[in-house]
Design a binder for these strands. Structure first.
Length: 618
DNA sequence: TTTCCCGGGGTTACCTGTTG
DNA sequence: CAACAGGTAACCCCGGGAAA
C-alpha cells in the first residue's frame, strides 16, 4: 500500500528497528509455541500494526486513526504483546507510555493474562476494584502500560483534550502509544423518541417545572405529525432550568430494576439538555413512534494518533464515512482470511426482533425450527445467538431447551452480549437466530456522527443510511459467527464450521455473505414445512407454477388477484399481509417490487444475486 | 358415543380516510 | 383518480369440549 511506502521513507530508523524486533519475536512465538502459521499477507498486515506502534513510540505517527481490520484469530494480540516486550527492552524509549483501551472489563483480564507483563510494569484503571487489583499496587501514572476501558476514557476526557487529561499521563506526559481494541467512533449518536419524551413529562411536572414541561409537550405534539426528515430547532430547555437541578428529581432507587430505569431517565435528560437549542432531525421510526436525532463528539481529536484494532473495520460503513468525510482514517494493510470450510445455511425468513414476538405463531415456528436443527447433530456442541427475552420478545432458551435431549451441549448467548466472550471458540455449530436491527433514526444518528454531518448541514442521504444499516448488520453477523470455531484459522483458512442464519432476502444480508466470509458456501436452510390453507395456499401454488417457467422475473399482483378472484383490498390483506404467505414467498426468494415507489408485483431475487451455490439450491 | 354450542380463522363486502 | 390503510359486520367452516 502507498501508506506503507510513504512510511518506510519517512520513518526514523528507530521505528524500523523496533518493528523488526517486534516481528522477529512474533514469528518466533508462532513457530515455536503455536500451530498457527500466518500467510505472507497476514505477516505483512501484522507488521503494519507493529510499524504503527513503533512510529507512535518514536513520535513519528500522523494524527490519524490507524485502522487495522484483521479478522479474529490472526494474531493482533500477539503483536501487541511482543511489541510491548520489545519496547520495554529499549532503554532509549523509557519515557514512552502505552495506553490500552478495551470495550469490556473481562477483556482486560484476558489481555493481562496473555501479555504476561511483569508486575510493576502495568496498572489497570477501571471502575472495578477486582480488575484494578490485577496491576498490584502500581500507580496508574507510574505504570508503563495502562489498561483501561473505553467508557473510562470517555468519562475522564469529557470533552477536554487528551493532552490535558492527567489520569492517562505517564511520567507527566501524555502516553504516546495508544491502542483501541474494537469499535471506534468519535462520539455518540443521539436519538430521543417521542415516547421517551412523554415519559419525562410527568416527572418534570411533579418536580415543579411546569413551563419546561409545556415546552416539551409542544415538541411532543409537533413531532407526532411532522414529515419524515424535517429539521427543527430543539427548544432551549437550558434557559429554564439547570440540568443538575432536574437530574436531582431522579434518585434513590429502591431496587436494581429501578436503578436501571432511573439511569436511563438521567441519560435521556442529559441528552435533552445537550440538544437544547440545537437543530435536530425528525425520523419516523414506524411503530416505535417518531424520534428526534443528532450526535455529539465525545472524543478529542488529539486522541489520535490511535491504533484501532477492529475486525469489523472492513465491513462497517461508519469507517468508510469517517474516511470520506472526516478524513481521519488511515487503513493499515489487511489480509483476507478465507472461509472455504465454512458453510452458511440461510433460512429466508424474517429474522428481526418482531419475528420473535412473544406468543406469536411465527415465534413458535422459529423456536421449533431451531430445536429441530440442533437435533440433526445431537452429539455436537451448539451456540445459539438470540434476541434477549423481554415482555414482547420470546424467551428462546426457555423455548428451545425442553425440546432437546441434551441441553447441556447447547450454549445460549443473546445479542448485545455476543461479543463478550471467547468461551465458545471450539464450537463448530453456530445459530444466528435473527439479526439485530436498530431504528432508522439510530442509523441516521450513527451515520451523521461518522460523517461529521450535523443536522443543520443538510439532509443525510437515504442511500448512506441504508449502507450504514447493512454495515452494522454485517458487523453483528461477523462478530457473532466468530464466537464459534471459524474464529480460529490455519494459515489463511478459517476452521471448518456450520453457521445457520435466519435472515430475509429483503434485509440484504444473505446477499452480502460471499463478501463477509470470502470463499464460504451458502446453502438454503428450510427447516419447516408449513401446511397452507385457503387463498394463501392457492396464491403460493400459483406463484410457484408461474415462476417455475424459465424467464419469468415478475408476476403482477393484479394477475394473481384475478386468478384467485379477489378484490385488491382483500388480496393485500388476506394474502400479501398474511404471516404464512410472507414467510413462504421469502423462502421462494420472492420480494414485493414495483417500478416506482409502490409495490405492484412479485419479483424473483435471482439466486446468483445472493451467492447460493447452484447445486445446493432447493 | 352422539349432539350441541362456541370460538377462531378465513372470506367477502362495504365503509372512511389518506396518499402519490 | 387509483391504490393504500384500516375498521366493521356478516357469513361459513371446523374442531374442541361440555352436555346428554
Amino acid at each position: 500500500m502507498t501508506l506503507r511506502r510513504a512510511r518506510a521513507d519517512h520513518a526514523p530508523t528507530g521505528a524500523v528497528l523496533l518493528t523488526a524486533r517486534t516481528m522477529q519475536k512474533v514469528r518466533q512465538h508462532f513457530e515455536t509455541e503455536t500451530t498457527h502459521r500466518p500467510s505472507k499477507a497476514m505477516y505483512a498486515a501484522l507488521a503494519d500494526i507493529a510499524a504503527t506502534l513503533a512510529e507512535m513510540a518514536e513520535g513519528g505517527a500522523e494524527q490519524k486513526i490507524y485502522l487495522s481490520s484483521l479478522d479474529p484469530g490472526i494474531g493482533k494480540t500477539t503483536v501487541l504483546s511482543h511489541f510491548v516486550d520489545a519496547l520495554l527492552e529499549d532503554n532509549s524509549l523509557e519515557h514512552v507510555g502505552v495506553l490500552v483501551c478495551v470495550a469490556r472489563l473481562d477483556e482486560i483480564k484476558t489481555l493481562v493474562h496473555r501479555m504476561g507483563l511483569p508486575a510493576g510494569w502495568f496498572a489497570c484503571y477501571t471502575s472495578d476494584a477486582q480488575v484494578n487489583a490485577l496491576g498490584g499496587d502500581t500507580e496508574p501514572n507510574k505504570a508503563r502500560v495502562l489498561f483501561t476501558t473505553q467508557q473510562m476514557v470517555e468519562r475522564r476526557l469529557d470533552g477536554q483534550s487528551f493532552a490535558a487529561c492527567e489520569v492517562f499521563h505517564y511520567r507527566g506526559k501524555p502516553r504516546q502509544v495508544r491502542i483501541w481494541d474494537e469499535s471506534w467512533l468519535p462520539g455518540e449518536g443521539i436519538t430521543v423518541s417521542r415516547y421517551a419524551l412523554s415519559d419525562l413529562l410527568s416527572l418534570l411536572v411533579s418536580g415543579g417545572y411546569r413551563r419546561l414541561a409545556d415546552k416539551l409537550e409542544d415538541l411532543f405534539f409537533r413531532v407526532r405529525s411532522i414529515e419524515d426528515g424535517t429539521r427543527l430547532e430543539f427548544p432551549d430547555l437550558a434557559q429554564h432550568a439547570e440540568l443538575n437541578a432536574v437530574l436531582s428529581l431522579v434518585d434513590s432507587p429502591r431496587d436494581n430494576a429501578e436503578a436501571k430505569y432511573q439511569e436511563q431517565r438521567r441519560e435521556q435528560l442529559s441528552l435533552l439538555w445537550y440538544l437544547s437549542g440545537r437543530t435536530v432531525v425528525v425520523r419516523r421510526d414506524g411503530k416505535d413512534g417518531n424520534a428526534v436525532l443528532s450526535y455529539r463528539d465525545t472524543l478529542p481529536e488529539d486522541l489520535a494518533p490511535l491504533l484501532v484494532l477492529d475486525a469489523s473495520g472492513r465491513v462497517r460503513e461508519t469507517y468508510a464515512e469517517m474516511e470520506k468525510h472526516r478524513d481521519n482514517i488511515a487503513r493499515l494493510a489487511s489480509a483476507a482470511k478465507r472461509y472455504d470450510r465454512l458453510t452458511v445455511n440461510v433460512w429466508n425468513t424474517g429474522g428481526g426482533k418482531s419475528s420473535f414476538e412473544r406468543g406469536s405463531a411465527g415465534a413458535k415456528e422459529l423456536v421449533e425450527a431451531i430445536a429441530a436443527t440442533i437435533n440433526t447433530k445431537p452429539g455436537e456442541e451448539w451456540l445459539v445467538i438470540h434476541h434477549a427475552a423481554s415482555k414482547r420478545t420470546e424467551d428462546i432458551p426457555a423455548g428451545v431447551s425442553p425440546l432437546l435431549p441434551d441441553a447441556s451441549k447447547v450454549h445460549f448467548v443473546n445479542w448485545g452480549r455476543h461479543a463478550a466472550t471467547n468461551a465458545f471458540a471450539h464450537v463448530k455449530n453456530v445459530i444466528l437466530a435473527g439479526t439485530l436491527f436498530y431504528r432508522p433514526s439510530q442509523y441516521e444518528a450513527l451515520g451523521r456522527l461518522a460523517a461529521g454531518m450535523k443536522p443543520e448541514q443538510g439532509e443525510y442521504p437515504l442511500s448512506a443510511r441504508k449502507r450504514i444499516e447493512l454495515g452494522e448488520s454485517k458487523h453483528g453477523i461477523l462478530q457473532a459467527a466468530c464466537r464459534g470455531a471459524v474464529r480460529n484459522c490455519d494459515g489463511e483458512q478459517a476452521h471448518a464450521a456450520d453457521a445457520y442464519l435466519i435472515a430475509s432476502v429483503r434485509s440484504g444480508i444473505p446477499q452480502t455473505l460471499p463478501e463477509l466470509f470470502p470463499g464460504c458456501r451458502v446453502v438454503r436452510w428450510a427447516p419447516v414445512k408449513r401446511a397452507l390453507t385457503g387463498k394463501v395456499k392457492e396464491a403460493v401454488e400459483y406463484l410457484q407454477r408461474r415462476f417455475s417457467a424459465p424467464g419469468t422475473a415478475v408476476v403482477k399482483f393484479s394477475e394473481v388477484q384475478k386468478v384467485l378472484g379477489m378484490s385488491a383490498a382483500n388480496f393485500r390483506r388476506a394474502v400479501r399481509q398474511h404471516p404464512a404467505f410472507v414467510a413462504e414467498i421469502a423462502e421462494l426468494s420472492l420480494v414485493e417490487w414495483g417500478p416506482k415507489a409502490l409495490f405492484t408485483a412479485f419479483k424473483r431475487v435471482d439466486a446468483s444475486d445472493f451467492g447460493f451455490t447452484p447445486s445446493s439450491a432447493q
